[in-house]
C-alpha cells in the first residue's frame, strides 16, 4: 500500500512538472500551429536568466518572473523578425525554429559558458506525511503547474480574449472579417507561449544543474506530451500526455545523448506533419 501511494505521488509530481515544461510548446503548437523546435532553447534560456539574476542577488521569485519576461521578449523578436512570415508553412517554421535552437544554444555557450551552474533551491527539505515524503520545492512546482494550466484554461474558456483565440482557431477568415487583427493575435500567443517556456525553465532550474543543453531533455519529453495529448487538446491533453510520458520516463533515459535525441524528435516531427498534421490521435 505504501509503495503504491508513493508511486502515485511520484507519478503525479513528474506529470505536473512535465506538464509545466511542455505547456509553452503546447500553446504555440495548439494555437498558432508552429512546432517550436526552439522550445528547448527557451527553457534553457529561462534557466540561465534565473541563474544569472539569482547569482546577482535577485530573489528567486522575481528572478523567475524576469526570466519569463526575458524569454517572452526573445520569442517576440523571433516571431516578429522571422516566424510571422511563415505561418501556414509548418515545414518552414520547423526548420526556422530548429535554426533558432542551434543559434541560441551557441549564444548561450558564448554568454554563459559551458560549465554546470547551480540555482540554489529556494525551498529545501521535504514535507513529511508520515508514510511518504514529498520534496517541498517539487511539490510547490507541481501545484503551481496545475494552477497555471487551470488559470490558462479559465482565460481560454471564460474571457473575451479566450473567445477571440478560439474563434481565430476555428475560422481565421471570419475572425478577421469581424475586426480581429490576426497577425497581432498570433504574435501575442507566440509571445505568451515563449514566456511560459522561460518561466518553466526558471522554475525547473533548481531541480537540475544548469548547462546549455538542459532544455533539450525537456524538449523531447514536451514534444511527446504534445503529440500524445493531441493538438488542440491544450489543457487535458497536456496533462494526459504528461502522465503517459512521465510514466515512460525510463525509456527517455535511452535518449540521453542529446544530438541523437534531437534528431529523433526532428524526424518524428516530419513524419507526423506529413501523415498526421492534426496530431497523432486525430485524423485530419
Amino acid at each position: 500500500m505504501e509503495t503504491i501511494i508513493s508511486v502515485l505521488v511520484d507519478a503525479t509530481l513528474i506529470t505536473l512538472v512535465l506538464a509545466l515544461a511542455a505547456f509553452g510548446l503546447a500553446i504555440i503548437y495548439g494555437l498558432v500551429g508552429v512546432i517550436n523546435m526552439g522550445h528547448g532553447a527557451m527553457l534553457t534560456l529561462g534557466a540561465y536568466f534565473t541563474w544569472a539574476t539569482t547569482t546577482a542577488g535577485v530573489p528567486f521569485i522575481l528572478a523567475v518572473v524576469l526570466a519569463a519576461l526575458g524569454v517572452a521578449i526573445v520569442g517576440l523578436l523571433l516571431e516578429h523578425i522571422i516566424i510571422r512570415h511563415f505561418y501556414d508553412k509548418p515545414f518552414d517554421t520547423l526548420l526556422l525554429t530548429w535554426a533558432f535552437f542551434l543559434i541560441m544554444t551557441e549564444v548561450i555557450k558564448i554568454v554563459f559558458g559551458t560549465d554546470f551552474r547551480n540555482v540554489s533551491n529556494p525551498l529545501p527539505g521535504a514535507i513529511d506525511f508520515g508514510t511518504i515524503k514529498i520534496p517541498a520545492y517539487k511539490g510547490a512546482i507541481a501545484i503551481f503547474s496545475l494552477l497555471l494550466i487551470g488559470a490558462t484554461a479559465f482565460v481560454f474558456y471564460k474571457t473575451n480574449l479566450g473567445i477571440k483565440i478560439r474563434a481565430l482557431i476555428q475560422n481565421r477568415e471570419a475572425a478577421s472579417l469581424l475586426g480581429l487583427n490576426i497577425s497581432r493575435t498570433y504574435k501575442f500567443v507566440f509571445c505568451i507561449g515563449s514566456g511560459i517556456a522561460g518561466l518553466a525553465g526558471g522554475l525547473i532550474s533548481p531541480m537540475l544543474s544548469v548547462d546549455p543543453y538542459i532544455g533539450n531533455v525537456f524538449l523531447i519529453r514536451s514534444f511527446f506530451v504534445v503529440i500524445v495529448g493531441g493538438v488542440g487538446q491544450l489543457f487535458g491533453g497536456t496533462l494526459i500526455g504528461s502522465f503517459f510520458i512521465g510514466g515512460a520516463e525510463t525509456i527517455f533515459a535511452l535518449f540521453s545523448k542529446q544530438v541523437f535525441a534531437q534528431s529523433i524528435v526532428f524526424l518524428l516531427a516530419i513524419v507526423i506533419l506529413r501523415y498526421r498534421p492534426a496530431g497523432i490521435l486525430k485524423k485530419s
Binding site: 473575451n160 473567445i163 477571440k164 478560439r166 474563434a167 476555428q170 475560422n171 477568415e173 471570419a174 475572425a175 472579417l177 469581424l178 475586426g179 480581429l180 487583427n181
Partner: peptide, 25 residues
C-alpha cells in the same frame, strides 16, 4: 457575411455574437 456563413461552429451562439462586439478590440 460570406457565402457559407462562416460561423464559429464550436463556439456558442452567445460567444459568436459576442465575438462580433469584441473582435475589433
Amino acid at each position: 457575411v460570406v457565402q457559407g456563413r462562416g460561423i464559429f461552429p464550436d463556439l456558442t451562439v452567445m460567444e459568436n455574437l459576442e465575438m462580433g462586439r469584441i473582435a475589433g478590440g
